[in-house]
Write a protein that binds this DNA or RNA. Structure first.
Lengths: 131, 131
DNA sequence: TTGATACATACGCATACGCGAATGTAAACG
DNA sequence: CGTTTACATTCGCGTATGCGTATGTATCAA
């Protein structure tokens, strides 16, 4: 997760160097999100999501919490101050990106829909964390 | 170099996701540096340096200028404001990293040495750019 | 205990990288 | 001219990464 001192810059940037992982981080934002939502928003297969989440977890960028059958993922602030600053800017960048806004809109729509897709019926909704 | 809109985040982070490239960017800082200095500071073979510089150039992170036999490389500020902000933080991060400071010290020492290594004798010294 | 659900991981394959070694190229020098 | 110098690029190889598909695993329901 980190090297001898501070945070491993290489590892952080490798984690960020993939579109799917950036989209995942974007969707997490300040929330704790269930895997099934990622799958549904991205309209992709579940192993792909799990693999990228595992990558992010190994890089120390996210952490997972189990709740019954469901797994919730959320972003972890880097312990190193400079890494945290870069990471915060990246999240801000994501927040203002068109495509990323579209993803978040689809997630929000899905959560509040009166008739959510079958794949997420009964799934715990994303939880707001302390911003 | 960049996508339809703004800066390609993926490409930027892939460019940053390698130790050698981070070291190169660190050595450039606000200067314009000749290839031979990179080779000498890193004590490595020249093709390795050239390949990573080419990678950075393709990513739009650096630009090259020819001066006789020598090639000078310098950092290019991203056109996109958010990319520029992230990039600035990364450079600050580099500036405060121990190992990176060591590299810069070796470069400085080499430039001012009364008897520089044979490989850089006669080579144009790094030029300060408008900080 | 059996089955279903929600994820995680393994597998096989294709592509991207990183490396050193060899080769190509452009500029300066004679 | 040809040679040297300073870089760039190519080549062959090993490893990392991303993908879809198949399979494992943990939890819950019955």
């Amino acid at each position: 997760m980190n090297k001898a001192k501070g945070f491993d810059m290489e590892m952080l940037f490798r984690a960020l160097a993939d579109r799917t992982r950036l989209r995942l981080l974007n969707l997490m934002g300040n929330d704790e999100v269930c895997v099934c939502f990622f799958v549904e928003v991205f309209k992709t297969n579940q192993p792909k999501i799990s693999r990228h989440l595992a990558y992010l977890r190994r890089a120390g960028v996210v952490t997972a919490r189990r709740e019954g059958k469901w797994m919730h993922y959320r972003i972890v602030e880097p312990s190193d101050a400079r890494a945290a600053r870069v990471f915060a800017d990246v999240r801000q960048w994501l927040a203002e990106d068109r495509d990323m806004q579209g993803d978040r809109a689809r997630l929000a729509k899905m959560c509040c829909a009166p008739q959510p897709p079958v794949s997420i019926q009964g799934a715990p909704r994303p939880k707001k964390l302390a911003a």
